[in-house]
Amino acid sequence: MNIFRLAGDMSHLVAILILLLKIWRSRSCAGISGKSQVLFALVFTTRYLDLFTSFISAYNTVMKVVFLALSYATVYLIYMRFRNSYDSENDTFRVEFLLVPVIGLSFLENYSFTPMEILWTFSIFLESVAIMPQLFMITKTGEAESITNHYLFFLGLYRALYIVNWVWRYHTEGFFDQIAVVSGVVQTIFYCDFFYLYVTRVLRGRGKMSLP
């Protein structure tokens, strides 16, 4: 464990909590893509199957349980508790356009052709595109509430910190996970456009930000 990865995991946790608390406190999920949240819950489900088979550390196990619980709680709030505020007209990204390539690629490119390994690879590739429905929804509605922007900012920060973590681990322990790194870089690139807008607009007090 290094400070970059710890900061990344904390930033990821903050992002998930920001969104969950925003929905719970405003009792509304307007402007939030339920599809992205379902994809994230699927990412955690397919990645953390080793929760019961391999023990890495208490931190690892606790964080996996927390991420699974919070992501399912978010999906529950969007599709059950506050479903009348779910903006389904604007959450129209065709997730099958994401799932089909990701499933195909995880069968082609993996470390070993075993169910656990293919599911893990699937979760890595899926995570890199899971935010697309949310970014698509923002371009469609033309704007994002500041809380949604903060959520996306911390999510992007988590990915950027993981890249720094991989550089650090490569130089200190020769660690290099090609699938995770390539997929993580692609994922971070999706946030670059958002990062630019976030810094130039949202941080200047204009609470609402509209993507081009």
Binding site: R5, D9, H12, D50, S54, I56, S57, N60, M63, K64, F67, Y111, S112, E117, W120, Y162, N165, F175, D177, A180
Partner: peptide, 10 residues
């Protein structure tokens, strides 16, 4: 066990 070790990231 190297595989399991390698997957120590969230």
């Amino acid at each position: 066990d190297e595989e399991a070790k390698a997957k120590d990231e969230l």
